[in-house]
Amino acid sequence: MQISQLLRHKGREVATIDGSESVRTALGVLADKGIGALVVSSDGRTIDGIVSERDVARGLHSHGAGLLAEPVSSVMTAQVHTCSPNMSVHDLARTMTDHRVRHVPVVDDGALIGIVSIGDVVKARLDELEEERKQLVDYIQTA
């Protein structure tokens, strides 16, 4: 399965935030949307970084509660791993595991078109394995 197929099922909505917004605002968006990461973008198309709950937790540990008033750009991860819609779910799973990332923005022709979480990848892989199992059972029963 390709990432483009996964996005067709889950949707292409990507929650973004401007890097100048406060960390407190980012936490509010994360909580309101029930998600674990926001793409940091000034225009919703280009990627300036990514900020996750983990980034905020580590920043709070290092800098204390004053961090909440700081801009998102102060805690975001600037070097973002991305993927193309043509990448396979299997290859993305490997990339996420190798680089220890849980959220990967999907980019096509330089523009942000979606985001995939580790949960999305696991669900897609389980669906693939279930389909393969069904095919094998059908093959055995008809043989």
Rank of each mutant, 00 (worst) to 15 (best):
T142K: 14
I115H: 03
S41F: 04
G11A: 08
A37E: 10
R8I: 00
I140L: 14
R133H: 13
A15Q: 08
A26I: 09
V80Q: 07
V29N: 01
G44R: 10
A26P: 11
L38C: 05
Q5L: 07
A143G: 15
P105F: 02
L30N: 11
I47Y: 00
A65Q: 13
V107P: 04
G114F: 01
Q2V: 12
V75W: 09
L27T: 03
K10Q: 07
K123D: 14
D55V: 05
Y139L: 13
V122S: 09
I118C: 01
D138V: 00
G119A: 13
V72P: 06
G59F: 01
L136F: 13
L92D: 07
V104N: 12
E13K: 14
S62N: 11
R133E: 04
V80W: 06
K33Q: 15
D32Q: 15
L92Y: 11
M76Y: 02
D109L: 02
L67Q: 07
D108L: 08
G49I: 01
I50K: 10
D98W: 03
R125F: 06
G64A: 06
I47L: 07
L129V: 12
M1W: 01
T16F: 06
E128W: 06
G28I: 03
T16N: 02
T46Q: 06
L67S: 06
H99L: 15
K123F: 09
L60R: 01
D108V: 03
V40C: 06
V29F: 12
R100A: 14
Q141I: 00
A26K: 11
S20I: 05
R24M: 10
D91I: 00
S22W: 05
Q2F: 05
R58G: 00
I115W: 03
R12D: 10
L7W: 02
S117V: 07
G64P: 08
L112N: 08
E130P: 00
K33A: 14
V51K: 04
D120I: 04
I17K: 04
V51A: 04
D32R: 15
V29E: 14
R100S: 14
